[in-house]
Computed example of a mutant assay.
Amino acid sequence: MSRSILITGGNRGIGHATALAFAEAGHKVAVTYRSGEAPADLVERGCLPVQCDVTVAEQVELAFKTAEAAHGPVEVLVANAGITRDSLLLRMSEEDFAAVLETNLVGAFRVAKRATRSMLRARHGRIVLISSAVALKGEAGQTNYAASKAGLIGFGRSLAREIGSRGITVNIVTPGLTDTDMARALDEERTAAIVGQVPLGRIGRPEEIASTVAFLASDAAAYITGAVVPVDGGISMGH
């Protein structure tokens, strides 16, 4: 059955791969992007690009209205939009700390709150929050990012308890280092050090994260909610 799906930050990396996975499965997919051009391959596959900065409430509302007008009420939300501003704590500005939380955590709050409006009426829905293995194990130089991604776990599990009785599931995926623009920004030495901690000995592929998201959004995962699902090659095991 074709569902109306909205993915924030769907123009690249994990969000892009997730959009492709849903589109290829025949779903109606809308993707938000903050800047630049919408990816041509997503448009070619029928995805609806919507420019939206999740830190601006008015843009979130407009994005949902645009997606709803084209595809109907959002039935699956993937909150993926995120940024990094890495620095050691003593050098980190309050602006950089706040900006990461505003996008990664407060942005997810905005889109989840808006999505539940129609999901509660329908008594059905799927929300998947994209967190990070860093939320579980920590990472030097990423106190802001780790705080924002750990916040998603508490937020998602609390929301799962709030709305589970209405047939809505909320789950959290924690990817490890994945082959995206964000990972490519790391120098070779840092990348090698991280990969050296991964039991599977490599970084992840966006498609591997996307397949997990697609499963959690499917009927096969109807009895899974409040779960934290690591897709990280084993780097966070034990946390």
Rank of each mutant, 00 (worst) to 15 (best):
R121V: 12
E207A: 15
R190G: 02
T169Y: 04
I83K: 00
G15F: 05
R45K: 15
L216P: 00
E207I: 09
E75Y: 11
N80M: 12
E24D: 15
I168N: 04
T8E: 03
A185W: 01
A160P: 11
G26Q: 07
A17R: 08
E102I: 04
T32I: 02
E207G: 06
T180S: 09
T143V: 15
L186C: 03
H27L: 12
P175Q: 14
G13V: 10
G72H: 03
A69Q: 13
L105Y: 09
R205Q: 15
E94G: 14
G176A: 04
N11T: 03
E61K: 14
K28Y: 10
G204Y: 10
E189G: 01
A150I: 06
I235R: 00
R190H: 10
R126K: 15
G176C: 13
N80S: 15
A227M: 08
R157M: 12
I153Y: 10
R202L: 06
G138I: 06
I203P: 04
V173D: 09
F97V: 04
E207N: 08
E75T: 11
A19M: 11
H27K: 10
G167E: 00
I168G: 05
G156E: 07
D232M: 12
G46H: 03
Q142C: 11
G141T: 08
V56T: 07
L186D: 04
S165G: 08
T143R: 00
G141C: 09
R34E: 05
H27P: 11
D181A: 14
R110S: 09
E162W: 07
G156R: 08
E58I: 02
A67F: 05
A217M: 02
S165K: 11
A214R: 14
V74I: 15
D53L: 05
R45D: 08
T55H: 02
R34D: 01
G46F: 05
T18H: 01
N171M: 12
I83E: 04
R3W: 01
R202V: 08
R157A: 04
L101K: 01
D53T: 07
S2L: 10
L159N: 02
L200E: 11
V43A: 14
R91I: 00
N80G: 07
Q51G: 01
I14L: 14
P49F: 08
T180K: 09
V100Y: 01
G72T: 07
Y223I: 01
H16Y: 13
V111C: 03
K65L: 11
R161N: 13
V56F: 05
D187M: 01
R190K: 14
G167P: 02
S218C: 11
I153V: 13
P206W: 02
M92Q: 14
C52H: 02
I209E: 08
D232A: 05
G36V: 07
S165V: 12
S118W: 06
R126E: 09
V78K: 03
T55I: 09
Y145N: 09
G151C: 11
S131V: 12
A69M: 05
F22Q: 01
S158A: 15
A23E: 09
V76M: 12
S2C: 07
M92C: 03
G46C: 09
I235M: 10
A30L: 01
I163W: 07
A112V: 12
A220E: 15
A150E: 12
G234V: 08
A140I: 10
L90E: 13
E37W: 00
